[in-house]
Nucleic acid binder design. Structure first.
Lengths: 233, 233
DNA sequence: ACCTGAACACCGTTCAAGT
DNA sequence: ACCTGAACACCGTTCAAGT
């Protein structure tokens, strides 16, 4: 399948009006499809051009370079984050949890891309500013002061990033690591990590079956309780 | 400086006993130096060979491929994590905070590598198992049950990963984003993020000057308080 | 303006050959 | 066993040329 989407012959030069084959948006859509189906490293400029049926260089008339393509993809992903409308009837803790879940969902929708997004500051910072409003709103409503709001939101966002990183990595893997973990822990040199070994064996294989959804809910709940306790909200 | 470290001529074939130029360890040390000083993408097999004064292919006799080099680097970094000895005289909350700080420090020591480590599951999972013992110990001492311990530790680790990702990214950047943030927020369309705008302007430029150390301490404190509250420890 | 072809300066890795 | 040279199948991007 190396030559799939090879450029059509006999169609070089500027296309006639209304038959442009390329646009920033079309390029980004194609790029996202490659990333989703074949992974990050499959998304090369040459491969992208090939699926668009176009010369590799044509892309550079719409996006300055490969980094810009990835930045554009990050934009696309965050744009899909549905903004929760303000609703003062729901308790602030629930509003916070809803915002957290929405943010996680946006990152989870494209696991192969999450990795790239989270490690590319320039891609994130432009959009994260807007994404963050519902977090600010609920904490403001809870009565936290500006300093506390910033600290709490930063912490929640960091947790979501770390969680999503783990979630995306496992999604990208082929093998199942739940029983793997049990095996690896059992194989540890005896004195090395006694508490870990005891806890893991006490839980057993079925107790270790990790569920990302409840893992996320628990993490957020711990954080929200911590915020309420520490800031007396 | 393209040809720095070009292979010495007239020295091909197997070296005589005791004059091996290469070893897994020497290769990894050189690789780490490249990553630290010039960044992740500067670390190519050819560049690595060149700084070692060796043919690119020689490396493959000690490490199977580039991924193995990065996995080896992750190993190196985690190996530098000093293990805190058990100390039951200190409160469990403090022991937890110490473990968190040590883990963060290990990731922070090589910011360019942190990104790679955190996004490479296979690199982490082998070592993180051991790293995690002090967290388990302190929570066990606090009286948490196995289920609670696992949930709490996962949450703390995820937070540290997300925090370190942000810290490493900013370190890798050249520009200062504190005043940048203020400018960007002010430029936002009026109705878009009212709470964010109000909080940020109330804090002002000096209030926003972000300090990673206190940011980390606050995050961990929130988490620890949440654990204590939710699990009634 | 938009697209192309050829070229430049790189990659990681295989394979057969040297000592 | 360990190292090398040449080669393969790729990269991202520049630049001059086409329409």
């Amino acid at each position: 399948m190396v030559n799939a989407g090879k450029p059509l012959p006999g169609r070089s030069g500027r296309p006639r009006a209304g038959e442009e084959r390329l646009s920033r948006h079309a390029i980004l859509e194609a790029a996202l499809r490659i990333v989703d189906t074949e992974g990050l490293e499959a998304m090369t400029m040459r491969r992208l051009a090939s699926t668009l049926g176009v010369n590799p260089m044509s892309i550079y008339h719409h996006l300055p370079n490969k980094a810009a393509v990835f930045a554009g993809l990050a934009e696309l992903v965050f744009a899909q984050l549905e903004s929760t409308p303000p609703d003062d009837s729901v308790p602030w803790k629930d509003e916070l949890k809803t915002a957290a879940a929405a943010y996680r969902d946006a990152l989870r929708a494209h696991p192969n891309l999450a990795l790239q997004i989270l490690s590319d500051t320039s891609a994130v910072s432009d959009v994260v500013v807007v994404v963050v409003e519902p977090f600010y709103r609920s904490l403001d409503r809870a009565g936290a002061d500006p300093r506390q709001i910033v600290e709490a939101v930063n912490t929640i966002i960091d947790f979501i990033h770390g969680f999503s990183l783990g979630e995306a990595s496992v999604r990208a893997e082929t093998f199942d690591l739940a029983p793997d973990l049990l095996a690896r822990v059992s194989a540890l040199p005896p004195g090395k990590a006694p508490t870990l070994v005891r806890v893991v064996t006490e839980l057993g294989a079925e107790g270790l079956a990790y569920d990302f959804d409840t893992g996320f809910a628990t993490g957020i709940a711990l954080l929200v309780d911590g915020i309420a306790t520490r800031f007396a909200l």
